[in-house]
């Protein structure tokens, strides 16, 4: 068990995989992300099936403002990079640097979420409400599921930052940070698909 992992007070290079619990968490989380892929895959399928059913509401090519979405995309992709720096700091055991990169990640995530909320409010004013059409329902469900994932990630990583500040880096906190960063990459990848399938394809019709 974990008792032998840091006898001399030194953390191993990959502290997230130093204990069986840690290895279980990392593997379990990879599998969970596999399930999440099916979840978003189904949401994408539903959106693709319904995206032309706009009824009286504004169609995608009139609705979307690619500038705003591109800015949100840039922010979220950058936050993925900063979470990579965080994991690098985790592997070199630099707690302060780790906390700093996680804070930047959370701030960027919150910026993305702010833009998304602004965007949704704007759409509702344009007559694109949740109940307007099958297009609008499936749009808000797909993009909203992603947004809810971002919101959950922000709360989760914030909680981990507090834990890191209080408990430091050890074989219990390391796997938590590691899987949170896996999660963050995953919602980033999903966003790349949303940007392509929802916004770019929406613009070309």
């Amino acid at each position: 068990m974990s008792a032998h992992s840091h006898v001399d007070g030194q953390l191993p290079h990959e502290p997230e995989k130093a204990t069986l619990e840690g290895r279980n968490k990392v593997l379990g989380f990879w599998l969970f992300l596999g399930g999440e892929t099916v979840l978003f895959g189904t949401l994408f399928s539903a959106f693709l099936a319904l995206r032309h059913q706009v009824l009286g509401g504004p169609p995608a090519e009139e609705l979307f403002n690619l500038g705003l979405v591109a800015a949100a995309t840039l922010i979220l992709l950058t936050s993925s990079l900063t979470s990579v720096f965080a994991v690098h700091a985790l592997h070199t055991h630099q707690v302060k640097s780790l906390i700093m990169w996680l804070i930047i990640t959370v701030v960027l995530g919150a910026g993305f979420l702010g833009l998304e909320i602004y965007e949704f409010v704007h759409y509702v004013h344009e007559g694109h409400g949740f109940t307007t059409s099958a297009f609008s329902s499936s749009f808000y469900t797909l993009v909203g599921f992603h947004g809810a994932h971002v919101a959950f990630g922000i709360l989760w990583i914030s909680l981990l930052i507090i834990q890191l500040a209080k408990k430091g880096l050890n074989t219990t906190t390391a796997p938590k940070v590691y899987i949170a960063s896996m999660y963050w990459h995953f919602i980033d990848v999903v966003w790349v698909f949303i940007f392509t399938v929802v916004y770019l394809m929406g613009k070309v019709g």
Partner: peptide, 13 residues
């Protein structure tokens, strides 16, 4: 919440 996924009158399928 009155969404329109499966309701043909709202464009659903």
């Amino acid at each position: 919440f009155d969404a329109n996924f499966f309701d043909p009158s709202g464009g659903g399928n």
